[in-house]
C-alpha cells in the first residue's frame, strides 16, 4: 500500500514538473518537448503490440494512418480536431484489425516481414496516389485545434493539450496491461501452447493487442501533425520505425516505464549531440548493439543489475 502511494506521489510530482517545465525552456526546445511527449505515447503503444511476443514493423505506418486520417478529415471535410483525433485512432485500429487476418496467420520472422511489407505498401500508396494523399509533399496547412479561443499554434498551450491526452492514453494503456487481458497477453507470449490448451484463442489476443496499440499510435499521429501542420509519407518510413524499436529496446521492453525511459533519455541525448551531425546515426547504432549484447533488458534493469552486483560483492548485505 505504501509503495503504491509512493508511485502515485512520484507520478504527481513528475506531472507537476512537466507543467512548469516549458516555461523554462527555449522556444525550439518547447517544440522538442511536444514531440517527445508524443513519442512517449508511440513507444508505450508499441509495447502493447509486442506484449504477445510479435514484433511488428508497421507501427510507424499506423501512426501515419492516424496522421493522414485526422489531416484529411480536418482539411478536406472540415471536421473539428476534437472529432478527428479519436477517429484517427479508430481508423488506425480498424486498419490493424483488417490486417490481422492475413498477418497473424504468420508468426515471428514471417509476421515481422509481412508487417513490414504491408506497411511499405501503404506508405508507397500515399506517395503514388497524389489524389487524395498529396504525394511526397503530403498535405499541408492543416488546421490547429480550436477550444475556448486558446491559441494552439503556440507551443505551451499545445504542450498542455498533448500532455493531457498522452497522460490519459498512458493511464488506459497501463490499466489494460494490469487487467486480466494484459495478463493473458503475457501468457500468449510466454506460454502460447499452454494458453491455447486452456482455451485461450491466441489469434484473438494477438489481434486485440495489435489493434489497440495501433489505435493509440493513430492518436499520437494526429496529435503530432496538427502541431507541425503538415503530414508527409517520409515521416513514417522504416527510419522512424527503427527509432521506435531502439527506444523500446534501450529503455527496456519488459516493463511499462522502461519503454518511456528509453525514448526520453535517447531523445534528450540526441538533441544534445546535434553537433555530431552525420555520425549521429552511427552512435545510435552502436548504442543499440551494446544494449542488446550487454543489457538486453534495457535501461530499466540497470539499477537492479548494479544492485545485484553490489550485493554479489558483499553477500552480507542481502540479509538486511
Amino acid at each position: 500500500m505504501l509503495a503504491k502511494h509512493r508511485t502515485l506521489m512520484t507520478i504527481v510530482l513528475i506531472l507537476a514538473g512537466l507543467l512548469i517545465l516549458p516555461h523554462y525552456l527555449k522556444y525550439h526546445q518547447q517544440d522538442f518537448l511536444i514531440f517527445l511527449v508524443v513519442n512517449v505515447l508511440v513507444v508505450a503503444s508499441y509495447r502493447l503490440v509486442t506484449l504477445t511476443g510479435e514484433w511488428s514493423l508497421i507501427h510507424a505506418v499506423m501512426m501515419g494512418i492516424g496522421a493522414y486520417t485526422s489531416g484529411m478529415l480536418t482539411k478536406f471535410l472540415d471536421f473539428s480536431f476534437w472529432i478527428s483525433l479519436p477517429l484517427a485512432g479508430v481508423v488506425a485500429g480498424l486498419t490493424a484489425a483488417l490486417l490481422s487476418f492475413p498477418l497473424f496467420r504468420t508468426t515471428q520472422f514471417y509476421f515481422l516481414i509481412g508487417s513490414f511489407a504491408a506497411g511499405e505498401a501503404i506508405r508507397l500508396s500515399w506517395i503514388h496516389f497524389i489524389r487524395p494523399f498529396g504525394g511526397t509533399s503530403g498535405i499541408s496547412a492543416l488546421p490547429s485545434p480550436e477550444l475556448l479561443g486558446i491559441d494552439f499554434l503556440e507551443p505551451i498551450p499545445y504542450f498542455y493539450l498533448t500532455l493531457a491526452i498522452v497522460t490519459a492514453c498512458l493511464v488506459i494503456l497501463y490499466r489494460i496491461e494490469k487487467s486480466r487481458i494484459g495478463l493473458t497477453l503475457h501468457a500468449v507470449h510466454w506460454q502460447a501452447p499452454l494458453a491455447e490448451s486452456v482455451g485461450i484463442n491466441t489469434w484473438n489476443y494477438r489481434t486485440l493487442a495489435f489493434t489497440t496499440g495501433s489505435m493509440f499510435v493513430g492518436i499520437a499521429g494526429a496529435l503530432k501533425v496538427h502541431y507541425i501542420g503538415t503530414v508527409t509519407p517520409n515521416q513514417y518510413g522504416i527510419g522512424f520505425m527503427v527509432f521506435i524499436l531502439i527506444w523500446l529496446i534501450v529503455g527496456g521492453y519488459k516493463t511499462f516505464y522502461g519503454a518511456i525511459l528509453g525514448v526520453i533519455i535517447l531523445s534528450i541525448l540526441d538533441e544534445m549531440f546535434r553537433e555530431l551531425e552525420v555520425i549521429r546515426p552511427a552512435v545510435y547504432g552502436a548504442v543499440l548493439i551494446l544494449f542488446i549484447l550487454y543489457l538486453p533488458d534495457g535501461l530499466e534493469s540497470l539499477p537492479q543489475k548494479i544492485a545485484s552486483r553490489i550485493k554479489g560483492a558483499s553477500p552480507k548485505g542481502s540479509h538486511s
Binding site: 524499436l245 546515426p281 552511427a282 545510435y284 543499440l288
Partner: peptide, 24 residues
C-alpha cells in the same frame, strides 16, 4: 553468435550495423 538464442537479438544487431555502415 552471442545472440544465437534470440532471433530478434540478431535482427536488432543488424539494424545497428545498418546505421554504422551508412555513416561510414
Amino acid at each position: 553468435r552471442p545472440m544465437t538464442d534470440s532471433p530478434l537479438g540478431g535482427l536488432i544487431c543488424s539494424i545497428g550495423v545498418l546505421f554504422v555502415l551508412q555513416v561510414a
